[in-house]
């Protein structure tokens, strides 16, 4: 715990150029991920969680740009890199070996024209010094590691010949074949059926234990957060509005948005006849954010001072929230 974090994002800002001027998509995002732990970045559509992951990987679209802040990553060799200033050429050495990623739809990340064996083998060709036979053995090992039945016979399969769950396993094998330190997983189970999601979450937990990697897990699903995360950062309209260890966040949400989000989830263990507390209204467009707290227009606790800019601050030990009334929210939990 006292070890320096593997990833430390400080006041990251990202803007997109559009026909009507620049749009700020990330406003001073700061997160910190310790070695071997899982940080869940949770939010609804448009909150900026995927933009954060793309920015960390140098994969922002051409009209997007980091306009401020830093993302310090500690390499395996112990060096420090600021991911926001890496050139595309340098990123190639980082992606795969140091930081790997998996996405929601494996079909769009896997190349439909190459076999499973070729795609995983290519990663080894790029990043490891192995002969053809050793590469093949390593690929089979990886497929076995992600629990693909009859792994050796799957080397010649094309992605379209696999089910969604199997494709996501291949995607994970591809991401982990070079044993990265950090895995960025962007909604990796969202497109899967719930019984298959359970398999993939179990698999990711086991692999993390065995390989000791850190995971930045991006999701909209608070149920998934509760299952996978050690720590949670909640995003709303391009900013982090609360960050805490997972049990504190669910037990003592300090931001009215987090509280509202939790109260709007249907739960099978809710008391009979209890109505869901929906959050009124909708997320404001990034082009028309209110001057102060972005959640204020929907917030049941909003008062005039909420029109002033608000910042994340410590409200309990290792628990931060961006709300001037966080203490009251905590007191009424």
């Amino acid at each position: 715990m006292t070890e320096a974090p593997i990833l430390s994002v400080e006041a990251l800002r990202v803007a997109f150029r559009s026909g009507r001027g620049a749009v700020t998509a990330l406003r001073d995002v700061s997160i910190s991920l310790a070695a071997g732990r899982t940080l869940a970045l949770v939010g609804e559509s448009g909150s900026g969680k995927s933009v954060t992951s793309l920015a960390l990987l140098g994969l922002l679209p051409p009209n997007g740009q980091v306009t401020g802040g830093a993302a310090r990553y500690r390499t395996r060799a112990g060096g420090a890199l600021d991911l926001t200033t890496l050139r595309p050429k340098d990123f190639r050495a980082v992606r795969g070996r140091e930081i790997a990623m998996i996405f929601q739809e494996p079909m769009s990340s896997l190349n439909p024209l190459f076999t499973v064996g070729d795609q995983i083998g290519e990663m080894l060709l790029l990043h490891a010094d192995l002969d053809a036979a050793a590469r093949r053995r390593r690929v089979v090992e990886m497929l076995e590691l992600v629990e693909i039945p009859a792994a050796a016979s799957r080397l010649g399969s094309y992605p379209h010949e696999l089910s969604g769950g199997m494709r996501q396993r291949v995607m994970i094998a591809l991401a982990l074949v070079c044993a990265p330190q950090l895995l960025i997983a962007d909604e990796p189970t969202t497109a899967l059926d719930v019984t298959v999601q359970a398999q993939i979450l179990d698999l990711m937990r086991r692999l993390q234990r065995e390989m000791g990697m850190s995971i930045l897990f991006i999701t909209h699903d608070m149920g998934v957060v509760a299952e996978v995360a050690d720590d949670v950062a909640v995003m709303y309209a391009g900013a982090i509005i609360e960050q805490a260890p997972v049990s504190d966040l669910f037990r003592k949400p300090a931001h009215p948005y987090t509280r509202g989000l939790l109260a709007s989830i249907p739960r099978t263990d809710r008391p009979e006849g209890e109505r869901l507390q929906a959050i009124p209204g909708a997320v404001p467009p990034l082009t028309a954010l209110p001057p102060g707290c972005a959640f204020a227009p929907r917030c049941p606790l909003a008062i005039p001072p909420c029109d002033e800019p608000v910042h994340l601050r410590e409200v309990l030990a290792s628990h931060r929230a961006a709300c001037i009334r966080a203490e009251e929210v905590l007191a009424h939990a």
Binding site: V194, T195, Q197, A198, L201, D221, M222, G223, V224, V225, A226, E227, A229, V246, S247, F250, R251, L262, I265, R267, T268, D269
Partner: peptide
């Protein structure tokens, strides 16, 4: 039973 047990519950203490 399997379907229900696969639904992730929003409760880390579960």
């Amino acid at each position: 039973r399997a379907l229900l047990s696969a639904v992730p519950q929003p409760d880390p203490a579960a």
